[in-house]
Nucleic acid binder design. Structure first.
Lengths: 356, 356
DNA sequence: CTGAAAGCGCTAACAT
DNA sequence: ATGTTAGCGCTTTCAG
C-alpha cells in the first residue's frame, strides 16, 4: 500500500541503496548474482521507480511529447502514428496529449511538456497563432507541425499549394471543362490549396473555374448540400469536376451528387485535397492527395533530433527559421477515374494501417 | 539558455522564492499586484516549472495515463477519444502512449506510468496476458480495457457475445437462410462473438450456419479472398449472408463478393461485428455493431475515479474483481438492407468525430 | 508577505 | 563491486 522506495528494496535485498540504483541504471556494474537478488526484491515488493525523482536527480528522459489539437481528425492520427514509429526507431518514447479542441489546454500541455525534462516537443498547430507556443519552449527542442511560418523556429508542413496544383492538373488531364471548387478558405491550408489550384488553372484559361466559398462550408453535410445543388444545375452551370478543398467536403459533395441522381465520376468527377483516411467512407472511393500526416510526424521527430544534435555540438543558431515542406502525391481512385475493381492487394488499403 | 529556476524568477520579480511558489500553486494567497509582478517575471524569463521537482515535492498529478497497443486501430482511437473527453470533463489530463504492437514496450509503458505519480493508468489489453500488467500497478489505480478477466482488478469490456447475437438476430430477421461466418477465433473477443452467434442460431436450427475459420484469416485481403470464393459457390453452398467476425474482414469480403460480380446485399448480405470506423471505407456501407470504444474509454476513466474515491474513503477491497460490460447496439447500413440514400443529417456520419 | 530550511526519491560522484 | 553522500527544483512549514 504505502509507496515502496529504493531504500525498501535495498533493505529487502540486503544490499546498499546505491547498489539498487546501479542494478537499475547500470546493470553491468553489478555482479550478476547480486543483480538477481535485487531484481527479485523489486518484484517481491512491486517496486516502480519514481520517475519524478529519477528525472530530478538524473538528467533528461529520452522521450518526446506530442500535442495534438484533437484526436478525431485523420491528419492528427497520421502524425501521431508517424511520430510514434520514428521516435521508437530512434530510441525515444512518445507521449501524446490531446487538447480536444481547447486552445488553452493546448498551450498548457505544451508548457507542461516543456517542464517535463523531455527531449523535445512536437505540436500540431491548430490555429495560426503560434506566438504562444514558440517562446514557451525556448529551452526544449520544439517543432511545429502542419504550419508554415517564417518566424524563428522549426516548422514542418505539407505543401498545400502543390496539393491544389496536383488535383487541378489531374482534373484537366481527365478532360474537365468546368471545375467547381468548394470549401471556405478559412485556414492557411485551404487557402494555399486554392492558390495552388488557381496557379495551375492560369495555364488553362479554356477551363472554367468556379469557386464556391460562400456560407458556412466546413463539414460533410455542407458538402452534401452543395454537391446536390451543383448536380441539379443545367448546362454550363453544372460542373463536370468538383474539387473539395478538404476530403470531408468532397465526400459530402459526392454523396450529394449521387443523391441528386447523377453518377460519379461519369456525370461529375470529384476529388478531395488532403488525403484524410477518415473521410474515405464514401460510397465511391475518393481521389485525393496523399495522406501526408505520417510523413509530418516522421519529419517532426527528425527535426527534434537534429535540434538536439545541434545543441550538443553548439551548431545551433537561435533565431533562425527552419521550414520543411512535404511533397504530396496523387491517390487516384474511382471518384475521378471510374470503377476500379479491387484486387486482393488493393484490399490491404482497407486497413488504414497501410497508409499510416 | 540555461534552465530557469523558481529562484531566478523570484530574483527577477524581486520577491521571495516561496512567494513565487505560492503564486503558482495558491494564487489566492498572493496579493493580486504581487501576482502580476511574478507572472510578468515568469513570462519574461520563459520559466516553465520543472514538473519532476514539483511532483517529487508535492504529491501526485491529476493526470491519467493511457497505454494503447497501437494507434491505427479504430477501437484504440475511440478509446483514446472517449478517455480523453471524460478525463477532461472530470478535471484530469490524459497522456497517451503507444506500444506500436510491441508487447514488451506496452508493459514498460505501463510500468513507467505507474512510477509517474499519475492518478491512474488505463491499459488496452493487446493480448490475454494480463498477468504482467495487473501486479505492476498495485499502488496506482489501474483499469484494463477491452478485456474480460475474473482475476482481481478492474476490467471494462464490450459485450462481444451480444455483438454476435445482435448480428445473428439481424441476419435471421432479414430472412437469411444460409449464413457464413468468417474469421479466426484467435482472440477472446472474436471467440465470444462467435459464441454469441452460435447461441442465437440455436434458436433457429432451420438456418444453415457455416463457420469458415481455417487458414490465416485476419486482414482485409483474407476477407477478400474468402468473399470471392464464397460468391462463386453454387446452390446451397453459397451463403446469402456473410458475417465477418471483424469489420476489417467483412469489408474485405464485401469487396471480394462484388469482385465476383455479385451484388451486396441483393445476392449476399454482409455484416461486421465490431463497429470499427476505420473499416468503413467499403464500396457499400457496412452494417455492424456500435463503435463501443468511446464508451470503453469513458468507463475506464470512471473506473479510475471510482478507485481513487474508494482509496480515499478506505472502502477499497484489494483482491476483488470488477468487470464491466458495455452493451453494443446495431448500426444497420446498406450492406444488409440495401441502398440507403444519404441524407444531409446522415452525412455527418462521414465525419468520424461523430462516432468517436 | 518574507526568509530559511526540511525533505520528496533518486542518481552520480565519490570513497571504501 | 559496494557503501556513502550531496544535491536535482520544488512545495511546505514555520517563524518573523
Amino acid at each position: 500500500m504505502a509507496k515502496v522506495t529504493i531504500g525498501d528494496v535495498a533493505r529487502e535485498a540486503g544490499v546498499a541503496l546505491g547498489t539498487v540504483s546501479n542494478a537499475l541504471n547500470h546493470p553491468e556494474r553489478v555482479r550478476p548474482e547480486t543483480l538477481a537478488i535485487v531484481n527479485d526484491a523489486i518484484r517481491r515488493l512491486g517496486y516502480a521507480p519514481n520517475q519524478s525523482a529519477r528525472l530530478l536527480a538524473g538528467g533528461h528522459s529520452k522521450t518526446f511529447g506530442l500535442v495534438l489539437p484533437q484526436l478525431n481528425h485523420g491528419l492528427s492520427l497520421q502524425i501521431a502514428s508517424g511520430a510514434s514509429t520514428e521516435a521508437q526507431r530512434q530510441g525515444y518514447s512518445l507521449l501524446i496529449a490531446t487538447a480536444n479542441g481547447d486552445e488553452a489546454l493546448e498551450s498548457s500541455y505544451t508548457r507542461y511538456f516543456a517542464g517535463t525534462q523531455m527531449s523535445g516537443v512536437l505540436v500540431q498547430a491548430s490555429s495560426a497563432d503560434l506566438t504562444r507556443i514558440a517562446p514557451t519552449a525556448s529551452r526544449v527542442p520544439l517543432a511545429v507541425l502542419d504550419a508554415v511560418c517564417d518566424g524563428a523556429g522549426h516548422y514542418v508542413s505539407v505543401d498545400c499549394a502543390a496539393q491544389g496544383s496536383l488535383i487541378a492538373e489531374h482534373a484537366v488531364s481527365l478532360g474537365a471543362t468546368r471545375i467547381a471548387v468548394i470549401g471556405r478558405t478559412m485556414t492557411p491550408q485551404t487557402t494555399r490549396r486554392l492558390e495552388g489550384i488557381r496557379a495551375y488553372m492560369e495555364l488553362h484559361p479554356d477551363v472554367a473555374l468556379d469557386i464556391v466559398d460562400h456560407g458556412e462550408i466546413t463539414q460533410a453535410p455542407d458538402g452534401f448540400m452543395i454537391g446536390r445543388h451543383l448536380a441539379t444545375q443545367q448546362g454550363a452551370a453544372r460542373p463536370d469536376f468538383i474539387i473539395g478543398l478538404t476530403d470531408v467536403l468532397a465526400c459530402g459533395a459526392l454523396e450529394g451528387v449521387r443523391a441528386a441522381g447523377l453518377r460519379v465520376p461519369d456525370d461529375i468527377a470529384i476529388a478531395g485535397c488532403d488525403g484524410n483516411p477518415l473521410a474515405w467512407s464514401c460510397s465511391v472511393p475518393l481521389t485525393t492527395c496523399s495522406p501526408t500526416g505520417y510523413e509530418l510526424g516522421r519529419r517532426g521527430v527528425r527535426s527534434l533530433i537534429d535540434q538536439i544534435e545541434a545543441r550538443r555540438t553548439g551548431t545551433e543558431d537561435a533565431s533562425e527559421n527552419h521550414q520543411e515542406l512535404v511533397r504530396p502525391f496523387m491517390l487516384t481512385r474511382a471518384s475521378t477515374v471510374g470503377r476500379t475493381t479491387m484486387q486482393a492487394s488493393d484490399a490491404t488499403g482497407l486497413n488504414l494501417g497501410t497508409f499510416l
